[in-house]
Design a protein around this nucleic acid. Structure first.
Lengths: 193, 193
DNA sequence: CTGCTAATGCGACACTTGTCGATTATTTGG
DNA sequence: CCAAATAATCGACAAGTGTCGCATTAGCAG
């Protein structure tokens, strides 16, 4: 997997921090005007007042930038909510709500959602949260935490995605409750005997 | 969504059938040698002994070809198994097994799996199968079949994907049983009171 | 303050992409 | 069997992509 491996990316150099932030801001601004596929690297660089070569110095392509930006923004959104892993029921609903909100927030105008690259970057984050949450619990001997986390994360995302694509959709809070009801059994299936 | 809308694609003209089959075969052959992103439309056309313009006559881009090919091959695999919607328990396990098998079958050599575009094309197919299966049942008033189908499909795929990425993985049949156990509650949550 | 290092700017490159109009080949219906 | 319809070929185009080498600048350590 080549997702979310930016561990070697940790820099303190204000130049690279500035460049990356400007690139993300630029992409976000452009996404409000046009579809992702219709945005060129040159446009992103121009909007950021950076050279196109500088872009490639930080991201292999525009999808990587989108992934990094999505990852960052979703983590911020969740952190802003202050998910507590002490009460898991609340965490599950909060994560579901976070995914719903994130979809509506980031994909403002167009049917930007169709792009898997945008969507997919949220799943590993959610997966990591479940993995962290599961580590605080005893689970049945045969169960695999990573498997449970992956299944739950993909299920939540699939549900949230479907909800978002629905016209005249119910409120996000209500949807989060439905998602919780559907997904909770997955996690409970690993409860110790 | 622009996925799996090929309804207008039904043709009997032997020329287009031949072209499309050759394009799919070419892509499949090339995928055994290199990554999807490293394959150009020109290469696919060359391998198929077709003109590049002919490619664009059938698919808007190479991702569309990949989607169409994945869709076709997965449907064939499932059909070969003869999924019966009369007993749903069997169908659920069979679909899960189909997804597992498909992952191992199509992504033979490289870590081709990382590509969402390849993976994602299976989900709508699975979703459609659940939708079909659910249409034969009475469900609770508040439940939405499309939502259930989407959630179950994504959950299955997420689980199968995780399984496939695991080294020294358990047999597909065993995994399918685990998936069934995890996913069944999602569908049961809509059982009529 | 002064280097050294590394990030950025710049221009160029070979290549890919998606599209177009014109021409040739194939299928199908009458 | 012929003629209209449509698919495939070909060459060309503007635009975008990813990568270079090299010059310039900004940050950081001594």
């Amino acid at each position: 997997m080549a997702q979310v491996v930016q561990s070697a990316t940790e820099t303190t150099d204000p130049r690279v921090l500035r460049s990356r932030r400007m690139l993300m801001d630029s992409l976000l601004a452009l996404l409000r005007k046009k579809e992702f596929e219709d945005i060129s690297v040159q446009e992103i660089a121009d909007e950021a007042t950076l050279n196109r070569a500088t872009f490639y110095l930080h991201y292999p392509d525009k999808s990587a930038l989108l992934q990094a930006m999505t990852d960052l923004r979703f983590r911020e959104l969740i952190e802003r909510r202050g998910i507590s892993f002490s009460d898991c029921d609340g965490a599950l609903r909060a994560i579901a709500l976070g995914v719903c909100d994130y979809l509506t927030e980031t994909t403002g105008c167009p049917s930007q959602l169709a792009k898997m690259s945008l969507e997919g970057s949220i799943i590993p984050v959610v997966e990591g949260m479940f993995l962290e949450g599961l580590s605080h619990h005893a689970i049945a001997p045969g169960a695999d935490p990573a498997m449970l986390a992956a299944t739950a994360a993909w299920a939540i995302f699939g549900a949230a995605r479907r909800w978002f694509q629905t016209r005249d959709r119910i409120p996000a809070e209500q949807m989060a409750a439905k998602i919780e009801a559907m997904v909770k059994p997955i996690l409970l299936s690993a409860a110790p005997a």
